[in-house]
């Protein structure tokens, strides 16, 4: 694919290619976490909803 526009900082070819190489794995991780949450939901286990404004750097 074609990347536009070119960034003002050099992202580094290696850094780009590494991300592309692990993209599938990372995406899979997110999908598994999401479906695990749903499976737990069927058994009545509540998962914390992702709420923007409650999220905080104070953890």
């Amino acid at each position: 694919m074609h990347y536009t526009p070119l960034p003002y900082l050099d992202p580094g070819s290696g850094s780009f290619l590494l991300q592309l190489a692990i993209a599938a794995l990372l995406g899979l991780g997110v999908a598994i976490r999401a479906s695990w949450g749903r499976i737990k939901g069927w058994f009545g286990v509540k998962t914390k909803p992702e709420d923007d404004d409650a999220e905080s750097q104070d953890e």
Binding site: M1, S13, G14, L17, Q19, L20, A21, A23, L25, L26
Partner: peptide
């Protein structure tokens, strides 16, 4: 990867990073 692909053109390589993968990267 930096050592190996230093200076290589990224455009010529195929591959794409889905939004889900991007979120996975940040979560990781």
């Amino acid at each position: 990867a930096q050592r190996r692909y230093s200076g290589e053109e990224v455009k010529s390589r195929r591959g794409s990073m889905s939004r889900q993968a991007m979120i996975g990267l940040i979560d990781s």
